[in-house]
Structures are given as structure tokens and as C-alpha cells.
């Protein structure tokens, strides 16, 4: 079973080396690909100096476009499972077997690593505001698709071969995490969550800034609603 870790990195010069080192220490059977999303700092130099397997995007595309490049790479190279894994040290490699399990058993097409499930003893459950935001988004996903996703903005997720193909062709680039979840759900794929713990960011700046949160929330909710509407039209045909 070929497994690929997709690691999007934008200006991650402090973290990227450690992240990759931890992955290599964890298992040498795991393939990974770092997608350098047109970083403006020394990320590219670090990647080259340490011979880290990577693709350098010639222009900045944002997280959605970067991750999709990873899925395209996974598709072209025939991987069975692709795992999205942040380059900033937030995600823990030790949860990779857990997150892959539902896919291997055929219980799910996508498995999301969730911070907020009760069982997890997460050191980092993030701020009140962010939890509130996640709750609002998950409420709207529940309304539109009927499925409860506790942590829709989590970037730690694994998908199987069919979904890799789907994502390689079509991936939402504006609000990728919640939107891709919704589009999978409305197209009848099975999505599962497993509890994981995440570390606090060890460096760099989160892509979701506090002041932009409300704007982000409104647009995500709109995107979710629109995604589920366009599905209903398609189904009637």
C-alpha cells in the first residue's frame, strides 16, 4: 500500500526541516512530498540543501492550489492513500496509522483528524474563538449534508484512491478544507473523523488571522450552502 504525505509549505523556514525529520524518523516507508507554495523566505534553500523531496510552485497559489498539486502528484504516481499534513509542526506523525485505518478497512473514503472529539487528550484545542468558528461551520455542514463534522477546518486528513482522483481533477481552492468535505459528502462519499492531538504552532503565522475570522466565516458558510445547492440540481438531471 503506497502512502503519500502531502506537506504544503508557505514561508515555513523555521519548521519544515523538523517536520520532515520527524516523518523520516517515524517510518522510512512513508513517502512525502513538500509543496513549496512560492515561498518568499529561505524555505526553498532549506529544501534543496537537505535534499527534501519537494515541488516548487512557480507562483503562490494559496493552500488549496498547493494541496491540489500534491493530489495530482499522488494521482500520477499511483498512490493508494494521500495524507494532508501541515508543514508547520502542528500535526503529529504518530497519528498517521490511526488516520489511515478507516481507509484501509474501507469504512471511509476520507478520514479527518479532529481536535475537538472528547476522547482526544489534546494539548492544543485552540482558542475559544476558533472553537466557536468550527462549531458554526460544522452546524451549517450538518444542515446542508446531514453529517456532523466536528472539526471541518482541520488540515490533517487522509483520503483513498478514488478521492485522490477526484481531488486531482477538481479541488476547491478558496476555502479548501470545509468545501472539499462538503463536496465529498454531497457526492455520497463516506467521511469519518478520528481524534488526534495537535501541537501549538512552533513558529510562523497561522493562515487564519483573528481579524479576518468573521469575513472568513461568512464566506465559508456561503460556500458550503452553494456547494450543496449545485449538487441538488445535478441530481435532478
Amino acid at each position: 500500500m503506497k502512502v503519500l504525505l502531502i506537506i504544503p509549505a508557505y514561508n515555513e523556514q523555521e519548521n519544515i526541516k523538523n517536520t520532515v525529520k520527524k516523518i523520516e524518523e517515524f517510518s522510512n516507508e512513508l513517502d512525502y512530498i513538500v509543496i513549496n507554495d512560492g515561498s518568499t523566505d529561505n524555505t526553498e534553500k532549506i529544501l534543496q540543501k537537505n535534499h527534501i523531496h519537494h515541488i516548487k510552485l512557480v507562483n503562490n497559489l494559496g493552500i488549496g492550489g498547493a494541496v491540489q498539486t500534491g493530489y495530482k502528484y499522488a494521482y500520477e504516481n499511483g498512490y493508494d492513500i494521500a495524507i494532508q499534513f501541515d508543514g508547520d509542526g502542528q500535526h503529529d506523525v504518530n497519528y498517521i496509522p490511526q488516520i489511515c485505518e478507516p481507509l484501509i478497512n474501507g469504512q471511509a473514503d476520507m478520514c479527518i483528524g479532529t481536535r475537538y472529539l472528547d476522547k482526544s487528550e489534546s494539548k492544543f484545542q485552540s482558542t475559544f474563538m476558533r472553537r466557536l468558528g468550527a462549531n458554526i461551520i460544522s452546524f451549517f455542514i450538518k444542515i446542508c449534508t446531514g453529517k456532523k463534522i466536528t472539526d471541518p477546518t482541520s488540515g490533517f486528513r487522509a483520503v483513498n484512491k478514488t478521492v485522490i482522483e477526484e481531488f486531482a481533477k477538481q479541488y476547491p481552492t478558496e476555502y479548501p478544507e470545509p468545501e472539499s468535505t462538503v463536496s465529498l459528502l454531497v457526492n455520497g462519499y463516506k467521511v469519518q473523523e478520528v481524534p488526534v492531538s495537535m501541537n501549538e504552532r512552533t513558529g510562523g503565522v497561522s493562515s487564519i488571522r483573528l481579524f479576518k475570522t468573521i469575513d472568513y466565516m461568512a464566506k465559508v458558510v456561503l460556500a458550503i450552502i452553494i456547494d450543496s445547492i449545485s449538487f441538488r440540481k445535478r441530481r435532478k438531471k
Binding site: I55, T69, E76
Partner: peptide
């Protein structure tokens, strides 16, 4: 279209 081009070019370069 631009996103697609950037992705394809970057993968080809690799």
C-alpha cells in the same frame, strides 16, 4: 486557468 498552469509547470519542472 492560471492555477492549473502553475501546477502543471511546477510538476513538469520537478
Amino acid at each position: 486557468k492560471n492555477t492549473l498552469l502553475v501546477q502543471e509547470i511546477s510538476m513538469l519542472k520537478k
